[in-house]
Nucleic acid binder design. Structure first.
Lengths: 265, 265
DNA sequence: CAGTGGTCTAGACCACTGG
DNA sequence: CAGTGGTCTAGACCACTGC
């Protein structure tokens, strides 16, 4: 362990030391961080599935031979990163995209309506779904070798009869073997929830680059706007555990009835 | 206090109870939350100025008659909200926009360049600065009465000789009495830093609505693009303490060389 | 009522900063 | 070296959930 003072209370299992490169900094890592890593490993190994509860703080404390407070601090950070959800009186649960709650956890597009009336569920239409060799640019974004197989999906989301989002997304073919347009069509609920339940891939974090673009002929037709009309271009890379990129998504949003919402602090 | 069990250790001053409406929920509020509110009050009253350190955890614990751990948890939350910054071995400091660090804390626009070379400071040009009666829409956003006086500033930010951002911003005239184009021009550093040091107004949080728009003739001229060219429209409301809106800002961003960056989790 | 997460305390010790 | 924030522990009690 990276800690020197815990002579008799090393957590179990004895976990390989993370840092401590000879030339670098001493890489001190507090106990609760090491516990956090251990819990993270269990999460990504699927010891506890999305939506399930993880062991109680007391149980984890016993398992790792640390105090409840230390486990608590580890879980606090996992909760802050939205990897688990705490529910007083019930337990701590593995976060999931399948929750009723906000339908799309990563979608920041909101209807303009000042009226709080949240619009109904989107109407989804798969336009295309095919396997192909990854173009260099796609491969790079997903950390694949150029030429590896990827799945490409194109779909349109329609809110209240207005086609609003045109999305292209690319997935590495290997982890998503068996994904078809039919399967996507049949599934009720967010796509990321399907990824969780059917393929064991949990999207944990994402980064977006946003631009304004003029609608191409093709996009204009699918979104029912005039070519050249300004659209919001949202390029998202979604990551699973370990900061592993697992999806590249390029969205074109109509922003005449909706807007992208963001909070800064 | 909302707490019943702390018979002899009520924090000082005895702070009016926050909730406890007869018809509503019992409104239990943990001690550390009450401490947090007390610290917040001192922050907004200016007991400690931006950049200064606040008293040590031990001092605050003594002052409020609670344990260090309770103060710690209160400060933890304030730090998570970016209201204060903790620095091990030195103390806890009131957050400020004047820090060297990231030049613009609320600006999410980044250069496209894969090269990490961060571009130099922006060249800023005040196009306009005037007092006027607030149009209804502006007044509503700022929580003013329609007809109240507001300051309007228009400026252009240029990065590496490319005019990239055209911003209009509206400020309630009262708190910003004495603000002039000259003063804005003379000031080195972020505008929000000037607001802090010269007017005692700290922007603490902001919300943005983002859209894609076609450049108007006027915007196109100022940003050196063709009219109709797609631009990113970013409408920001910045809040000071107590969720009080203090600035409305409408920015038009060129996204041919830059992009708006956002992280989701 | 037992079990869970949530709060609070008190005390010991560690890591980091600056004089 | 003293002072600060950061970690860790152990124990008590509270609030919430569901049986």
């Amino acid at each position: 362990m990276a800690i020197s003072s815990n002579s008799t209370t090393d957590p179990l299992p004895p976990a390989a030391d993370a840092g401590d490169a000879p030339g670098g900094t001493p890489a001190f890592s507090p106990l609760y961080q090491q516990i956090k890593v251990l819990i993270l490993q269990s999460l990504q190994e699927g010891e506890w599935k999305p939506g399930e509860s993880i062991p109680s703080e007391m149980e984890l404390a016993a398992r790792f031979r640390v105090s409840q407070g230390t486990v608590r601090k580890a879980i606090d950070e996992l909760a802050a990163e939205n990897l688990v959800v705490r529910r007083q009186g019930k337990g701590t649960f593995v976060a999931t995209h399948a929750e009723h709650q906000v339908q799309y956890r990563f979608l920041r597009l909101l209807p303009d309506s000042g009226s709080g009336a949240s619009e109904g569920p989107a109407e989804r239409r798969i336009v295309d779904c095919k396997r192909q060799r990854a173009p260099a640019e796609i491969a790079r974004a997903l950390g694949l070798r150029s030429g590896d197989t990827v799945l490409q999906v194109r779909r349109v989301l329609t809110f209240q009869n207005v086609p609003t989002i045109l999305e292209d997304l690319w997935l590495p073919a290997a982890p998503f073997k068996g994904l078809t347009a039919e399967r996507l069509d049949a599934y009720r609920g967010p796509m990321y929830a399907l990824f969780e339940t059917e393929f064991g891939v949990r999207m944990v974090r994402a980064e977006e680059k946003i631009r304004a673009l003029a609608a191409s002929e093709e996009a204009a037709a699918l979104l029912d706007v005039k070519p050249g009309e300004p659209l919001l271009s949202v390029e998202r890379i979604a990551y699973t555990y370990q900061d592993l990129p697992m999806e590249l998504r390029r969205g074109l949003y109509r922003t005449d009835t909706h807007h992208y919402h963001n909070t800064l602090s």
